[in-house]
């Protein structure tokens, strides 16, 4: 690795230096939603879901697309494009990407298919792009590769925040 690259990691403070030195190849999933890419550890159980019905729920946040029935488990579906405050597109052209299993399973709308990348090949960003406030809390690092920005996000915390519903106290 080039010494400058190492310095860049130090500057952003986003990567563990010891990992950087000792790890040779660390595969990682990359999923694209709108203009952004998100990194998902390959240690997580992931699958692409095709032709599966998403059932809408009334009175929930607009980034909750609904729930789907994944082999008898109820799985919430989140739309990160809405979180990114980008224009909503036709979901028929998108795919669903499920992370984890059982009670903790979550599905996300993705554009295209997931990619597998070597983490070491990603170039750390000196400065993160401007992100919506909700997302800012959970981003722990940013990288780029061939012009695509990849965000390293604390996914579990983000999903918890997306699923936490808050309502006005006004009663009907």
């Amino acid at each position: 690795m080039h010494p400058d690259d190492f310095k860049a990691f130090q500057d952003t403070g986003t990567a563990d230096q010891s990992d950087l030195i000792t790890t040779k190849v660390e595969a990682i999933f990359g999923i694209r939603t709108g203009s952004m890419g998100f990194l998902v550890p390959t240690t997580s159980y992931c699958e692409v879901l095709d032709k599966i019905q998403v059932n809408m729920l009334p009175n929930v946040h607009h980034w909750v697309s609904g729930m789907l029935n994944l082999r008898g488990n109820l799985v919430p579906v989140f739309d990160l494009r809405v979180v990114l405050e980008e224009a909503v597109v036709d979901n028929k052209k998108r795919r669903l990407f499920a992370i984890d299993r059982g009670d903790k399973a979550v599905a996300l709308w993705i554009d295209g298919l997931p990619e597998i990348t070597d983490r070491a090949s990603l170039q750390p960003l000196q400065k993160l792009p401007v992100l919506p406030e909700l997302l800012q809390h959970f981003v722990i690092g940013g990288y780029q590769l061939n012009g695509q920005v990849w965000l390293d996000v604390k996914l579990s915390d983000l999903f918890k925040a997306l699923g936490h519903h808050q309502y006005s106290m006004e009663e009907v």
């Binding site: 009175n59 929930v60 006005s168």
Partner: peptide, 18 residues
């Protein structure tokens, strides 16, 4: 009928901090 619910007239719920 009795729980606090969303007051914003929108298709989807807005996150209102309580």
């Amino acid at each position: 009928l009795r729980a606090p619910i969303r007051a914003v007239a929108h298709v989807y719920a807005e996150p209102l901090a309580i």
